[in-house]
Design a binder for these strands. Sequence first.
DNA 1: CTCCCGATAT
DNA 2: ATATCAGGAG
Length: 220
Amino acid sequence: MLTKKQWAHCLAEMDRMFPDAHCELVHDNPFELTIATLLSAQCTDVLVNKVTKTLFQKYKKPEDYLAVPLEELQQDIRSIGLYRNKAKNIQALCERLLVEYGGEIPASREALVTLPGVGRKTANVVLSVAFDVPALAVDTHVERVSKRLGLCRWKDSVLEVEETIMKKTPMDKWSKTHHQLIFFGRYHCKAQNPGCPTCPLLGDCREGQKRLKKGLVKEA
DNA sequence: CTCCCGATAT
DNA sequence: ATATCAGGAG
């Protein structure tokens, strides 16, 4: 497992690698961010942004998503994948927003996770990005990077990963660290062919050291 | 645990 | 051909 000193070094290096890490889901308000994050499940944010560019011109408010047949909304987001579940969740979400929350996205995790299609990860994204509430969303990148580094255990659940990172990171850096871990996972420590040969974190990385001993890390 | 699912990279 | 992508629900 990473020591405190090693994690501090990782944070410093990621600061150098990705000083402007940020949310790459294009949005103008909490409602749009919630829709975009819901759509982003098992899909690249590039594809999500391509769809929401036109989607957010057609649908501005919850009422707009409920004014069309389900099949029409499905077609509008078809290229995203998982489009039947997502379209159904969006309409159910909008219905609940109008009935329970005056058409606005609630700013508490307890309320957010009760919304259709919104789990803990999406709730944490909305909380931290839209409402500036301390939270740390663990997505596929954050989970993979944390486990490769040895920041947490391989067997940890996403909730355990979240708790571990929060415990080991100052609260005022949760949001920045969250986005830096995503950028690091997306652009450097990729799922396929991780960039170990040029990685500034190789010396601290559990998986990287293992690969090094196996001769899998060739010099750049 | 399985299912949902199209687009893209490898 | 196969793996992966800002997951969530049953």
